[in-house]
Write a protein that binds this DNA or RNA. Structure first.
Lengths: 129, 129
DNA sequence: CTTGCGCCCTCCCCTTAGGGAAAGGTCAAG
DNA sequence: CTTGACCTTTCCCTAAGGGGAGGGCGCAAG
């Protein structure tokens, strides 16, 4: 299968697939003409990658997940640990974004938003209490 | 004031201050010895930058905010628009992270996390329903 | 006076996960 | 045979600095 079709099937872009090959994450075979030829198993792997990425895993973490997936003597504990760690990280990002949202909402509320130059947003950013 | 002290007062790093200078965001004067010399007003500007960054504004957005702050004929509407747009963006990121958290939580729950290789996390990432 | 330590300078490479574009080869259809 | 769509490689670009090398400056102690 050509790169564009494989990418479509996995919900990715051809550029991403070339990138994954360049970092050794998924290296397809090549046809006579030099074109990458993605096997069905490759597409399945690409879907795995896409799902893991959608869960917030970085590429190197996806590599670990794939390594576990391919290792028949893995322990499910190890996969769960990766997920738990990612979950904790996502929680931290959520908390950080909630703080930002709160601050931004307060800023927006404090400003009339009219044609006058009086702006409590800028005053507060400048340190005015 | 030297770069390290200015950075400390603003809750930033010397490296960040050098970067801000390199992109023309805040250019301090130089002393005889070539050292950057941050005036009190510069430190206030750095604090403005730090607060805006903490709210999630990108550097180019901070530049706009600073430009409004320095423009006496600004309209508070413009500042409020920037804040509202950033707020909407933060909401989108929150929503995206909530989806990730949900998915990760389901994955974690479905996996025993023991020494066996049976792992529903990896199965689900592989497309197993 | 000089040594040492801490601070400062510039310059360069590194990070994530690809996107965009250029220059050229290939394939299938008309 | 040509055209257009697809493929290839290679290079540069992103945000916001971090890390480190190599070298200069300032101030206190010996």
């Amino acid at each position: 299968m050509n790169i564009s079709q494989a990418a479509r099937q996995a919900g990715l872009t051809p550029k991403a697939l070339r990138y994954y090959e360049s970092i050794g994450l998924l290296v397809p075979v090549r046809g006579e003409n030099g074109y990458r030829d993605y096997a069905a198993a490759d597409v399945a792997t690409l879907q795995f990658i896409q799902r893991a990425r959608a869960c917030g895993f970085a590429i190197e973490e996806v590599r670990e997940l794939l390594s576990l997936y391919r290792n028949p003597s893995r322990r499910s504990h190890d996969a769960k640990a990766l997920v738990a760690e990612k979950l904790a990280q996502v929680e931290r990002q959520l908390q950080s974004l909630r703080v930002m949202r709160e601050t931004l909402a307060e800023l927006a509320d404090s400003c009339p938003g009219d044609d006058s130059p009086n702006c409590r947003i800028l005053d507060q950013l400048a340190g005015g209490k």
